[in-house]
Simulated assay, not measured.
Amino acid sequence: MPLVRTSLYGGIGRLTLADPGRRNALSRELSDELCAGVCSLLGEDARVLVLDAEPPVFCAGGSLDGLIDRSTPLAASYAGFTALAEAPVPTIAAVAGPAIGAGVNLPLACDVVLAGESARFDPRFLDVGIHPGGGHFWRLAERIGEQGAAALVLCGDVLTGPEAVTHGLAWRCVPDAALPTLAETFAERVAGRSPELVRLAKATLRASRGLRTPDEAAAMELAAQEWSVAQPYFRETVERLRDRIRAPK
């Protein structure tokens, strides 16, 4: 049985962690399957990726057997969330249940995190005697600030789904039963737009992190804007909107 199930419909690629018996732990095999799933869906022209997991645990972090077995390089467990982080299309994590240790890296690698009320974000690296890896500190501090990263990793704090929204780790929190529908709504909005334009907008958003002034940002966005208004999609979309506005009530 696959450890990560994939499906593609309407431009929406879905990746489901499917090893609930081992709490969806990031074994070498699961991480490799996640990486392969991301690459496969992108190769099939997925316009957006949605990551979720079979309950009750979203991801228990690194496989304990894998951590003890020093024959497996630690970096091997990074393949899955690195593929997510590097995806050129928008990525959405739908987190229900605990995300523990390296399991927190998975939603951190995604552009948008949606949480169910059962979600728990618990890095817990130091509790098992290991230093965070995979860029965990950087990604976490980028979302919730250096103090937040210190509170979770150094002091052992845990964020619930609603608290994750308050602190910026997640965008919305809904009852678990409503989470799939919310993720689907977000994904459908992405898939219904020009894929080239969405990819360019995501690339601009990422590149903006390295800019220092509003003038640099404006110049980058102007170049992207000028490209977008030269595309047939732009004219077709604007004309459709104009006709709808002008239509008799």
Rank of each mutant, 00 (worst) to 15 (best):
V95S: 05
V4N: 07
L126G: 13
R193K: 00
P56T: 10
D45G: 01
A76T: 05
D176L: 06
A170P: 05
V113F: 07
F125S: 02
D157A: 11
A60F: 03
A36C: 06
R22N: 11
L200Q: 07
S208E: 14
R242N: 13
P195C: 04
A201Y: 14
R244M: 15
R14F: 01
F125M: 01
G61W: 06
H167T: 09
F137Y: 07
F121I: 02
R124T: 11
G80Q: 15
R246Y: 08
C59D: 11
D69S: 03
E44F: 02
C173Q: 06
V158R: 11
V174D: 09
R47T: 07
P175T: 00
A150R: 15
P214K: 01
A115C: 04
T16F: 05
R244S: 14
A85H: 10
L205W: 14
G62L: 15
R23F: 09
V158A: 02
E117Y: 06
T16R: 15
I130T: 08
V57H: 10
E163G: 07
I245A: 14
F137Q: 12
A141W: 08
V57D: 13
L108Q: 10
A60R: 04
G37R: 00
A25E: 15
G61M: 05
R139E: 07
S7I: 05
E44W: 11
A85T: 12
A85Y: 13
P98Q: 06
L8A: 00
R235V: 02
A76C: 04
R244K: 14
L30T: 05
A247Q: 13
K202L: 00
D176I: 04
A102C: 10
A109H: 11
P195S: 09
L241C: 12
E117Q: 09
L159P: 10
S208D: 09
A218Y: 13
S118W: 01
V174R: 07
R189P: 01
I68C: 05
L64T: 15
Q225F: 12
A247T: 14
E29D: 10
F58D: 12
E146N: 10
F125I: 01
I144E: 11
Q231D: 11
S194P: 03
W227A: 05
F125Y: 09
Q225Y: 11
V48Q: 10
R206N: 08
C173S: 15
N105G: 15
A187T: 09
D122V: 05
A223E: 13
R193Y: 03
G13D: 11
Y9T: 13
S77P: 00
D243H: 11
G135P: 08
D122F: 04
G97F: 02
G156C: 04
S7A: 09
A224Y: 01
T160I: 05
W171P: 01
V104T: 14
A60L: 00
P98D: 12
L126W: 14
C35V: 01
V174F: 06
E236A: 06
D176F: 02
C59M: 04
A94L: 00
R23D: 15
T213N: 06
V198C: 08
R143P: 08
L205G: 08
S228I: 03
T181S: 12
A87Q: 07
A218N: 14
G10L: 04
R206L: 11
D52T: 14
A93T: 05
W227V: 02
A36G: 13
C110M: 04
K249M: 08
P98S: 05
